[in-house]
């Protein structure tokens, strides 16, 4: 019977434009990598500069950073993804008014992993993350990035 499990790799990002190379070690029982999710939270003390176009009807979603993953088993990158802050949850929602605006914690859709299928026999996945929100804010923003790697065994 196939079982799915997730491996979480936390990465602390502290500097603007920081590029972090890392390795994810999977258990020997892992057969295939079947999905990738990215999440994170700001560490205490980080102050984000508001969106420059925050008064506009449609706000720019801030790009927090970019992630790329490569398996030791196969050539080329098997996953490239972005972590973004959703600033437009209320766009086009007629239930919003001056007292209440839909937020991500009330209106988010279900979150699912990005499906990938790649060999995990070598049990080592190489990753690269590049910060962008620090560059946008022109100051270092501290946050903890979580890379969720779903694998089958």
């Amino acid at each position: 019977m196939m079982q799915e499990q997730v491996c979480i790799t936390p990465l602390a990002i502290n500097k603007a434009g920081q590029v972090k190379h890392f390795q994810i070690r999977l258990p020997k029982t892992a057969k295939k990598v079947i999905g990738v999710e990215i999440g994170g939270r700001f560490l205490n003390g980080s102050k984000l500069v508001p969106n420059i176009n925050s008064d506009a009807l449609f706000k720019r979603n801030q790009l927090v950073g970019e992630l790329k993953l490569q398996s030791c088993e196969e050539a080329n990158v098997f996953f490239a993804g972005e972590l973004r802050l959703d600033s437009n949850m209320a766009y086009g929602d007629y239930t919003k008014n001056t007292q209440w605006i839909p937020e991500v914690f009330t209106h988010q859709m279900q979150t699912f992993e990005d499906v990938v299928i790649t060999n995990a026999d070598s049990t080592v996945i190489n990753g690269m993350y590049k910060d962008n929100i620090g560059l946008q804010n022109q100051q270092s923003v501290s946050y903890l990035l979580n890379v969720y790697l779903w694998y089958s065994k």
Partner: peptide
């Protein structure tokens, strides 16, 4: 049996009223 390991963010298991 561990289904979601430590540090699995709650936001990934939440569903908004849009769902």
């Amino acid at each position: 049996q561990e289904y979601f390991p430590e540090n699995y963010e709650s936001k990934l298991l939440m569903s908004g009223i849009n769902v």
